[in-house]
Amino acid sequence: MKPAAFAYARPLDWSEALQLVASGARPAAGTQSLGPLLNLRLAQPDMLADLRHLPDYAGVTVTGDAIRIGAGTTHAAIEDGAVPGRTGAIMAGVARRIAYRPVRNRGTIGGSLAHADPAADWVAVMPALGATAIALGPRGERRIALDGFVTGIFETALASDELLRAVEVPVLPDAVGWGHWKFCRKIGEFSKVTACVLAVPGAAPRAVLAALDGPPRVIADASALMADTEAEATRIVSGFPELDDWRRAVAQTALMQAVAAASQP
């Protein structure tokens, strides 16, 4: 199907982009999620603001113990190692399983986070990694913890006059345990359930259960899940009475599989 008509703007600097968004334009990055919604007429914005030409929209910089990833950095760049170290290796593994390579070549990490599809990948993984969103608004940059960034289906903590500028992830030590398990019946399709577990030595392990038709559920201290996995996974999924039995069973499996992967030396 063809999209409903909309106007198109291509801001070349951030202040112009902010003005466009404040006046109601829908920000667009790679359009790999928004494009389908436009074609299906599920989204009918009056105007798109194409952010792809903004300065420093894509790219990775490391400062001390933080890695700043420009919102316009593509999944393919992350898959190919744009993010360094153990953090980068974890993210590369996640990126490789997002949709398909031709989609990853244009889809961006910031676009995916700001779009906030509950079944998308970075909305599950970024809270697990302890990432921070860098929002840009009329009064400058603001930091928003990814734990709490996604507030609902296609809803985020970004204000209506803000853009997602970058996402900051910590430099993780080589010794961290990581588990990421998602259920797709076909490679590349949207996840039915996703679980992530990050175990940093000397810190409380963190878990995320996501793709459950709402914002990701962050378990800030997953020590009990690591210690008594099956019982605790059963308890966690019992907190989702709205899900079908099979989906709750898959969620339990996801948590157990992610813990198992994160527990491997």
Binding site: A28, G35, P36, D50, V103, N105
Partner: peptide
């Protein structure tokens, strides 16, 4: 699927206007 700037991409969810 076509090649855009040297890499494969979906031409059905890439707007012509973004290909300037």
């Amino acid at each position: 699927t076509v090649e855009i700037d040297g890499v494969p991409a979906r031409s059905c969810i890439t707007h012509a206007g973004s290909c300037d």
